[in-house]
Design a protein around this nucleic acid. Sequence first.
DNA 1: TATTGTTATACTCTATAACTATA
DNA 2: TATAGTTATAGAGTATAACAATA
Lengths: 142, 142
Amino acid sequence: MRFDQRPPEPFADAVGFLLTWNGRRIAHQFSAALAPLDLRPQHFGVLNLIAAKPGSTQQELVDGSMIDASTMVAVVDELEARGLAERRVHPTDRRKRSVHLTDAGQETLARAREAANRTAEETLAPLDEGERETLKALLRKL
Amino acid sequence: MRFDQRPPEPFADAVGFLLTWNGRRIAHQFSAALAPLDLRPQHFGVLNLIAAKPGSTQQELVDGSMIDASTMVAVVDELEARGLAERRVHPTDRRKRSVHLTDAGQETLARAREAANRTAEETLAPLDEGERETLKALLRKL
DNA sequence: TATTGTTATACTCTATAACTATA
DNA sequence: TATAGTTATAGAGTATAACAATA
């Protein structure tokens, strides 16, 4: 899908289309903003979840995200392979793994958050502060 | 991706996330609404383009949509195989194909438009008329 | 029996590149 | 040489189902 052109006119009138199109466009830009850090949106989301609750089990990460169990394994695998997170044995249940951030993971998360904020700022530039709040409120209502 | 649950709280505060999530959710519902007619959103879009300009070449359909040329071949193939559209020889350029709707295509398009409107109505139910206009205006600005 | 994590696999969707026939 | 349409193929991304270890 190309985002370098305006959406074709016949469609630009439908709210649903506008939402879908803008949603994809923003997801795409967000993804591009994380690329220099070698992260995809999923990694960013999971890093945030771990930071919010260190020692989460993978099941908890699945519940807190919209990623299914087998994909979560792959995401945590990648984070672990790159030294951003680590699996530890769970204190009371040997089936479970407690997932924690490493120091490198903390740093990478901080930089990713900066990148995310910068992109959000760029994307929302056409809207002033009040308009952003209005948009957020409307989207929450949906 | 599951849309049967609310988005996880830590993310629900970011406008970008809300846009992406709602965009996907709506695309998903739209897709589901077209499924009984055995159409995917792409088919619907292309049917609309043909209806707007009967006899369009596939290149014109590509330019008017966000679908690339090889995918367009597949979409038109499917429409043609199901008797909704047909390729005719182009009057002046034998490389080109003029794509037209059949009567069945017209009817299916009409029913698809109804389904699309119905779904849009359901999805946007939480918003009153003024709010919908505001949302549309904000999304156009982005 | 049920759950956690895992693996292997299949499936969807789309883009890329190469080909043909025409211009 | 360039363009319209086509085909074959490869890639990303995700979901499904089956499995081992543990509860």
